[in-house]
Amino acid sequence: MEDALSWGSILLRIAAQLLPVWVALIVTFALSMQFKRRLGLYGRIFDSPVGMTGFGLVMFWVFTALFADWIITHDPLAQLSGMKNIIPGSPLKDPAEGAYPWYLLGGDHLARDVFSRVVMGAREVLKIAPAATVVAFMVGITLGLPAGYLGGRLDTTISFLSNLVLAFPVILLFYLLVTPEIRVTGIPIALAAILFIFPVIFLTILFNSRFFTTPAKRNLYVGLTLLFGLWAYSGLAFNADPLGIWSMDPNMLNVFVSVVFVNSPGVFRIVRGMVMDIKTRDYVAAGQTRGEGPWYIMLWEILPNARGPLIVDFCLRIGYTTILLGTLGFFGLGVTPESPDWGSTINYGRRLLAIAPHPAVVPAIALMSLVLGLNLLADGLREESMKD
């Protein structure tokens, strides 16, 4: 049996396991710095120390999630004999042939490797938060643009429904939407049917308005959007994809739909407010004078000029969503009970803080660093977008 590792050896071995992440970060930063003047707002992040630091933290976890299968030292669900609540750097009691000989960050209450669970937990978090935030933004933008631009009863109705959702306590609303019992009511399926159609509507209107004067391109882009969009929609919302490519586990569907439903009203209000301001600008009046259609003006004149604040809000909202997902996992309402998501790992580890703090502290630091990176990135983007 191997000897226990010192903290210096533990950190060196963790750094070695994360080698693919370091290489990917170096390549990303090198290329981004080389071509930053050609990359618009993204390139200008590297002129801001705050934004660059946030970008580095975020991409560290993105690459960790991507290369998780190469980084982990053990199966994050495997329970090895004699490794329950073991301290960091402890050797395996009875290692199998070819197995990694240590638990680098110790074992949890079920004798699972904390290091591998934290690494794989990054994939669980980043699998839901960005995608759900993108869908929430498509819902908010699709509703916020006409509400702010056209006003009237449409604005009044959508604003009332938005305020109704926002008036409900967020954590309690999440708790109600993700409980397993709610699946029997069919509410998650109904919400998925409503919310998942918005990306298809958004992209269809986007291409139709842009290529309206060139029917051949318009028909091609709109046709492809409807073909692939409705195919994905049938699988994700109703699990009716005949090829089985698009599907979502019921637990994940609950969480995903809940994130979209809770975030969409906030995005709607931001977009609506910005549109009400921008629509009074001279270039919008010029577009109206040229005879451009309302959707063209909204999507191709107004929306690009609102991109700075929306990109900043997008980064912040991913951070909020990450915290909410951690909170759900902490309450045992995550994707699956055995999931290595950070919230569940913190929940399991908190009961042993007095005798073995590492199962809870390590995922808590991981969660904090990702959210910190997103906040710093948002600050950097805000700083650079204000220079336009």
Rank of each mutant, 00 (worst) to 15 (best):
T225I: 12
F228D: 02
F228Q: 08
L230G: 06
A232R: 10
S234M: 12
A237C: 08
F238T: 09
F238Q: 03
F238R: 04
N239P: 03
A240L: 13
D241M: 00
D241R: 01
P242I: 01
G244H: 02
W246Y: 11
D249N: 15
D249R: 08
L253T: 14
F256W: 13
F256I: 08
V259F: 12
V260W: 09
F261Q: 04
F261L: 15
F268I: 09
R272G: 08
R272P: 01
M274T: 01
M276N: 06
M276T: 07
M276R: 14
M276Q: 14
I278C: 00
I278R: 09
R281C: 04
Y283E: 02
A285S: 14
T289K: 10
R290K: 14
R290V: 12
R290Q: 14
G293L: 05
G293V: 01
W295F: 15
Y296I: 05
M298T: 02
E301F: 03
I302F: 07
A306K: 10
R307M: 15
G308K: 10
G308D: 07
G308A: 11
P309N: 08
L310C: 13
L310D: 05
F314L: 15
C315D: 11
L316V: 12
I318F: 09
I318H: 02
G319V: 14
